[in-house]
Write a protein that binds this DNA or RNA. Structure first.
Lengths: 202, 202
DNA sequence: TTTGTGTTGTGAAAAAAATAACAGTCACGA
DNA sequence: TCGTGACTGTTATTTTTTTCACAACACAAA
């Protein structure tokens, strides 16, 4: 149910804009989705709309937040403080969501000491201990591909339950209850490339 | 057909490892997918396997590359040279795919002049012209959310055919033949959060 | 040669998702 | 008060995707 997450964020925006109620059609318009789909997704949450009139922004937002646990903020971390890792660490603090960046890791101890950051940084070998201590639940992996699997294992050992793997390496989570998203920029651009090719070949 | 893109990259790796043939089962194992699915995807390309024995790595790779246009490299650019944009610009050069980074854009002219980069940098208002001149087909958008739609319009005006929007803003492509992928890190982490919540609520 | 194992490609069945259709409800204005 | 228009939630239909099953084929060993 990825769409509901988008809806949730849109509702935050609408609330900031001072919007009090919205219809599924309006939501669909802003998210480029059709309203049928959204209504079906929302109905999965339960009955939260006003029959005949749209949804109360605040109420719908709260309902989704509760069901999907987006109100609570989980502790997150970034492993691999290269350009991309650092950028994400900063970025995630500027665009907050259902998480709080609580730590950064890197195998290069020099980096740990030199880098300035608003979150505490630790050497990579401390991953299991620190993850457990800080109750970190989410992790973004931005290490070199060859190290991705090892890092993932350490994270899972520490008790992480969600992994966002941004390396081109395809990795596996050691435990089945751990959720893993592979998100490689190269792949995304390749996909677009493929779509364009298929389209123009018509 | 996102899976075929993954297969393609895996085939490159296998080729580097000196592997000559693979079976669909082996591919599936390395990609954490089941072989049925892969075979069906591959069959869409045409008959490229050896009945009874697996696939020749080189041949399969070429077949996919041809069909999906992954052999040719399209020119790409990054708009918005903040931390994330710069990181992606570098990152994309280190992890090459079916594209070549050919330009960077930012509205802050100071930045353009100060930053050092291996690709030429331009002020944002030149987007349509430069995109057309360099025949840029792909673009990564890493500007502040409020500027995302305008930037997208400029890019499309220049003739870009694939957009990778990494801002939380939901944008639309002005022309229908332009492919758009919305890829927001916050959303990805929120999704993981939601999955964890739903899972633990069972 | 023959037998057995492993493989591809494809067609059929099952599952999931998207789309459409509609009954029931409310708000508002005449 | 009554009708009109707009909306939700749910059911039905279609489409897409995934999963399963199997015939056709190659290769190695006996």
């Amino acid at each position: 149910m990825a769409r509901l997450c988008l809806v949730y964020r849109l509702l935050e925006e609408l609330q900031a804009e001072g919007c009090v109620t919205v219809s599924s059609t309006q939501l669909g318009e802003r998210l480029s989705m059709n309203s049928h789909n959204l209504r079906k997704d929302i109905s999965y949450i339960g009955e939260v709309g006003n029959w005949g009139a749209g949804y109360e922004v605040a109420r719908l937002k709260q309902a989704i937040g509760e069901k999907l646990g987006l109100a609570r903020r989980r502790a997150a971390c970034v492993v691999g403080l290269g350009d991309l890792g650092r950028a994400i660490l900063d970025h995630a603090q500027r665009h907050p969501g259902a998480f709080v960046m609580a730590a950064g890791f890197d195998s290069n101890i020099n980096k740990i000491e030199t880098l300035k950051s608003s979150v505490p940084l630790f050497p990579a070998y401390q991953i299991p201990e620190v993850v457990r201590r800080l109750r970190i639940e989410l992790a973004v992996i931005t290490v070199p591909p060859s190290a991705a699997q090892k890092v993932a294992d350490l994270l899972v050992e520490g008790g992480v339950c969600g992994l966002l793997n941004m390396t081109p390496a395809v990795i596996k989570a050691a435990r089945p209850e751990v959720f893993l998203t592979n998100l490689c920029l190269t792949d995304e651009l390749n996909m677009l490339s493929a779509l364009i090719t298929l389209n123009t070949k018509l």
